[in-house]
Design a protein around this nucleic acid. Sequence first.
DNA 1: AAAATCAATCGTAATTTTACGATGAATTAA
DNA 2: TTAATTCATCGTAAAATTACGATTGATTTT
Lengths: 111, 111
Amino acid sequence: MKRTKFDITYHVDTEELARFAKALAHPVRVKIIKYLSEQTFCFTGDLLDVIPLAQSTVSQHLKELKNAGLIEGEVNPPKIKYCINRENWEKAKSLFCIFFDINLDDKSCMI
Amino acid sequence: MKRTKFDITYHVDTEELARFAKALAHPVRVKIIKYLSEQTFCFTGDLLDVIPLAQSTVSQHLKELKNAGLIEGEVNPPKIKYCINRENWEKAKSLFCIFFDINLDDKSCMI
DNA sequence: AAAATCAATCGTAATTTTACGATGAATTAA
DNA sequence: TTAATTCATCGTAAAATTACGATTGATTTT
């Protein structure tokens, strides 16, 4: 961003969806989330086995996912146990569903 | 990005989802898509009435959405008519649904 | 033919992102 | 206590993003 004459305001949902999208705007971060969906949790070291980037770089990506609220880390000395933040995950899912015009309620119609 | 020792490869879906997410990683672009969903089509001028940014800036955002394949522009001299690229839209929807573990088939169960 | 309109592109500048190695803090193991 | 580990953070550099005004090219209107 740069010198904007005045601040632009968007709808909360628009801004929030963009924030979630931004968090997912890098393949490494998508991969981390996918990994977490499969493993339910993991330590940074597990990711380093799977992602050929420096530890500091992966840590940076984790930070972004954490800042976006998509994951959370629990201290499990000396490691840190990461997992998906379910509450915000549902929030993101909901926003994307509305955006893509998907009616989640239809699922309640399952036999 | 910067000096990476070697190229990293990701799954096609991972890369594609990240690309779509990146296109939606800015509130203005989310707003444009939302606008297009409601109006089915629009001209750049319509967007300028709604978005308080320079014409060149909006044009840049449109270009990004076009490059990601989410929208398409049809020349309608002297204007350009924009609309959502349905094919890629469905592709994006599908990728996000898989990512969020949403089973679209459940919709076929509607009464 | 000249003027007006529309939208893309260019050039530029500030900011943000991405990546690395090095360092540091906290905890565990020897 | 010392050494090893785990992960965050710092400092840095290259690249990408975001925004603007100005210009250009295409078309339409006068």
